[in-house]
Amino acid sequence: MAKNTQNQTHIIGLKKDIVDEQTGAPAGYHVINDLHIGYGSAYATATLASYYSQKLHEAGKQPMGSTTVTLYGTPPRGTDVQDWAYRSIAAETAPDALDPYGNPVQPHQFSGADLVFAPADAGTEAG
């Protein structure tokens, strides 16, 4: 399971060192740029923008690239949707996991990422 990098309020990103597939450069900080939830089909897609570091994201720099991942299931009613998505993205994929159609779920590069929480006084979400 992903661990917290801070014990604060809501999740604003993920930390995990990967190699960006489009540029070949290392990226360590990732934020949800787009999130689509298909309640009727019980899945979601999240597009994550990748940055070299959290500091560069916070400075308003452009992302290095983006990656789209599929999440199976939908957030429970009353849940913070972004927190649900970040937790789902960072969750480890069980070896025997199946999608709603009975096909094996392939792990993605963000599994096991650390969750990044907003400071308690941050007010609004960034990402």
Rank of each mutant, 00 (worst) to 15 (best):
T93Q: 05
G123W: 06
D121L: 07
P95K: 09
A113K: 08
G102S: 00
P95G: 11
P100V: 07
Q106S: 03
I89C: 01
L98T: 06
P107V: 11
R87A: 11
W84F: 08
G112S: 05
I89K: 05
P104R: 10
A120Y: 13
E92M: 13
D99Y: 01
P95R: 01
D114R: 12
A90Q: 08
P104K: 13
L98R: 15
A85L: 11
P119W: 10
D99E: 01
A97F: 11
Q109I: 15
Y86F: 11
D99K: 09
P119Q: 15
Y86D: 01
D121S: 14
F110S: 13
L98C: 06
R87P: 11
V105Q: 11
T93C: 11
Q109T: 15
A122F: 05
F110N: 11
A94L: 10
I89S: 04
F110D: 00
V116H: 09
S88F: 09
A122L: 08
S111H: 14
A90I: 00
G123Y: 04
G123M: 02
A122S: 12
F110A: 04
A90L: 02
L115A: 01
A91Y: 04
Q109Y: 03
S111G: 15
P107S: 08
V105S: 00
Y86C: 06
G102D: 05
Y101Q: 01
P104N: 07
A118F: 07
D96P: 12
A91S: 10
V105M: 02
